[in-house]
Amino acid sequence: MDANQSMVFSLALRYLRDAETAEEIAQDVFLQLYRQFDRIQSTEHATFWLRRAICHRAIDESRKRKLRPRIGLESVPEPPAETAAPDTMLNERLRRLVAGLPDAARMVVLLRYQEDLDPAEISKLLDMPVSTVKSHLHRSLAVLRRKLEKMQAQTIRAQAREACS
């Protein structure tokens, strides 16, 4: 159950970027599972069910609460240069970039890199053709990589300016 708790909570958290709502909907999903526990055949089935339920619930919640404005990755403001440890800074930047992805692409990226699922499994979970999953992954990776490189170049330039002055 602990592993499933983290999986369900993390998917909701990364998708919605709101810990309170993520916990609330994760609880709802577990409660829903408890109500129909007699229909669950195995632990794998429970994990699949929970993953599917939290994905759809998070997407619905995002639409309902309009937590995320409809903007593309290109218009996401870049995070300011930070003074934290380089790894932490890089992770946080990447998280923000992922959070700025459009809804469907964001969920596909989360399922691929957080849950380590392959495109066929993601396609089953999200009721989406495999080709669409692959296309979301390909485009998202390209955009994330480009955006991150741009941000890193800016940071290096800023550090160089600081060193010169």
Binding site: Q5, S6, S10, L94, V98, Y113, Q114
Partner: peptide, 15 residues
């Protein structure tokens, strides 16, 4: 880059 993404997006423990 993909490993970096995996590292960044690893599961968070629930509260």
């Amino acid at each position: 880059f993909e490993d970096q993404l995996r590292e960044t997006l690893r599961q968070e423990p629930a509260p």
